[in-house]
Design a protein around this nucleic acid. Structure first.
Lengths: 249, 249
DNA sequence: AGTTCTATAATCGTATACGATCCTAAGTAA
DNA sequence: TTACTTAGGATCGTATACGATTATAGAACT
C-alpha cells in the first residue's frame, strides 16, 4: 500500500479541478527510477509554473497536491519550500501557496540584472572560446531558427532561446555565473517570451541572434556584450508592451 | 508534552558533540514568539555557518539536530532544504548534510559577480539619493569605523560592513537587486572578511570606505561604481591570500 | 596478513495522525 | 436588509512510526 520511497508516481502538469473522482488520484503512472518524490514534485510544479499552466494567485493546497500526486503532504511541503526558495511561489498562511507573479517593476529590474550578468558572461566567453564552443553555439542558433517557426513553436521558444544564449555563457567556464543566469531565465521566461507574439518579431529575433552569432565568430567580446545587453532590454520592453495590451484591451 | 507549534525552543549555535547527556537536549529555552520552528532552525544554522562555527564538510545528521533543537526531524529537514536552496549546504545521502565550502575559483567568480551587481546598484543609488539616504549611509560609515576597532570587532565586522554598503544599495530602490546582493554577501562573508586580519588592513578599509562615502556625498555614480568594484575585488584577493597562508603555513 | 563477504546498525525519506490556528458561512439582532 | 457574533470546517505545522537503502565493522577465506 505504501508507495515505495523514491518511486512515487508522477502527475502530468494538468491539475484538473474536477470535483468528481477526487478520491481517485489522477497521475501518469510513470515510475521514474530517478530522484526522490519531493524532487519529482518540485520539477513537475516548476514546469507547470514556467509553462503558464499554474497562473498567478492560484492557490495550491498541500493536501490537494498530495492527493493528486498520490503521496503524503510531506514531500509536497518540501517541494513547495524548494520552489519558495527559488522565488516561484510564496506561502500564504492558511490560504495555500500561490504562484508569485512578477510586477512590471520586477521584470524591468531583473532584466537590468540579466543585461549586466549576461554581457559579462558573453564577454568572458570570448576570451577563451574554443572551436567546440563555437560549434555548439552554431548548432543552437540553427535549432532556434528552425525550431520556433512552426505553429506550436511558441512552446519550445523558451527552451531553444535559452539553449542558444546558454551555449555562449557556458563557454565562459563560470559555473556560478552560469547558474545565476539560468535561475534568472527560469523566473523570467514566462514573461519575456511574450514579445514573440508580435508580428514580424520572429524575424527580428532571428536577425539579432545572427548578429550575436557573428560577434561570436569574430570573438569580439565588446560588441557581443553590447548586442547581448540590447537584445535583453529590447525583449523585456516589448514583452511588457504585449502584457500591458493583454490586461487592458 | 508535545511542543506547541511555532514555539519550539531554540538552541544556541554551539552544537557540542559531547556523547554524555546526549539524551538530554541542550538548548536555550528561549521561547521566541515569532516564526515557526523550521524558520528558527534555519536562522540558527545559517548564523552558525556564516559565523564559522560549522566548518566545511562537518556532517549534520538530521536526528542529531532534531535532538539538540528539541523538535522532530521534519522541521529540521525543512530548514536544511532551505539552506540547500541558498547554497550553504548540500545533501549527501546517508552521510548527512554538509556545509558546502567555496573553492578559490568560486570565491573569485562570486566576487566578479558582486563587483558587477554592486557597482550597478551604487550607480543607480546616486541618481536618486535623498538626504535621508545619505544620512543613513553616514551613520553606517561611522558605526563601522568605531565598531570594528576593538578586540572582538571581528565578530561584528561582517554585519557592520554590510550595513554600510547595504545602506548605499538600499538607496537604489531596487528590491530584487538588493536581495541578490544580500544573498551573495551571506554566502561570501565568512571568506571575504579574512583580509581584516592583516596588519594595517583595518585602516586601509576605513580609508576606502571614506572614499566611497565622499563619492556618495558628491553623488558621483561613475566614481562610486569604480571604487565599489575595486573595493570588492581587492578584499577578495587579499582574503584569498590569507586563506592560502592558513592552509599552507 | 590482506581481501572479500555478510550481517548489523544507522540514516534517510515518507506515511499517518493530531493539535493549533484561521477562514467562512450560518444565525441573530438592529 | 445589513452588520455583527459564533459555530463549524478546513488548512497548516509538527510529532511519531516505519520501510528501504547504505555505510560499516566483523567474520571467513586465500
Amino acid at each position: 500500500m505504501a508507495v515505495r520511497a523514491g518511486h512515487a508516481k508522477r502527475i502530468a502538469p494538468q491539475l484538473t479541478d474536477d470535483p468528481m473522482r477526487a478520491a481517485e488520484p489522477k497521475f501518469t503512472p510513470v515510475d521514474t527510477k530517478s530522484g526522490s518524490a519531493s524532487l519529482e514534485i518540485a520539477d513537475a510544479l516548476r514546469r507547470a509554473i514556467t509553462d503558464g499552466i499554474l497562473t498567478d494567485g492560484q492557490p495550491m493546497r498541500q493536501s490537494e497536491l498530495a492527493r493528486n500526486f498520490g503521496v503524503s503532504t510531506i514531500p509536497v511541503r518540501e517541494a513547495l519550500k524548494q520552489l519558495e526558495a527559488e522565488g516561484l511561489i510564496a506561502f500564504l498562511p492558511h490560504r495555500g501557496a500561490v504562484v508569485t507573479g512578477l510586477s512590471e517593476a520586477d521584470i524591468l529590474e531583473y532584466s537590468d540584472i540579466r543585461a549586466s550578468l549576461e554581457s559579462m558572461a558573453a564577454g568572458l566567453a570570448m576570451t577563451s572560446l574554443t572551436r567546440v564552443d563555437l560549434a555548439r553555439i552554431e548548432d543552437a542558433y540553427e535549432a532556434f531558427v528552425s525550431g520556433t517557426g512552426g505553429a506550436q513553436g511558441m512552446e519550445q521558444s523558451g527552451r531553444l532561446n535559452w539553449e542558444f544564449h546558454g551555449a555562449i555563457y557556458a563557454a565562459a567556464q563560470r559555473p556560478r555565473l552560469y547558474g545565476m543566469i539560468h535561475d534568472l531565465h527560469s523566473r523570467l521566461d514566462r514573461y519575456i517570451r511574450a514579445h514573440l507574439e508580435l508580428p514580424g518579431r520572429k524575424a527580428a529575433t532571428d536577425a539579432e541572434h545572427f548578429q550575436i552569432l557573428q560577434a561570436c565568430r569574430a570573438r569580439d567580446g565588446e560588441e557581443l556584450g553590447r548586442l547581448t545587453k540590447q537584445h535583453i532590454l529590447e525583449a523585456a520592453s516589448l514583452s511588457l508592451d504585449v502584457i500591458r495590451e493583454r490586461t487592458t484591451p
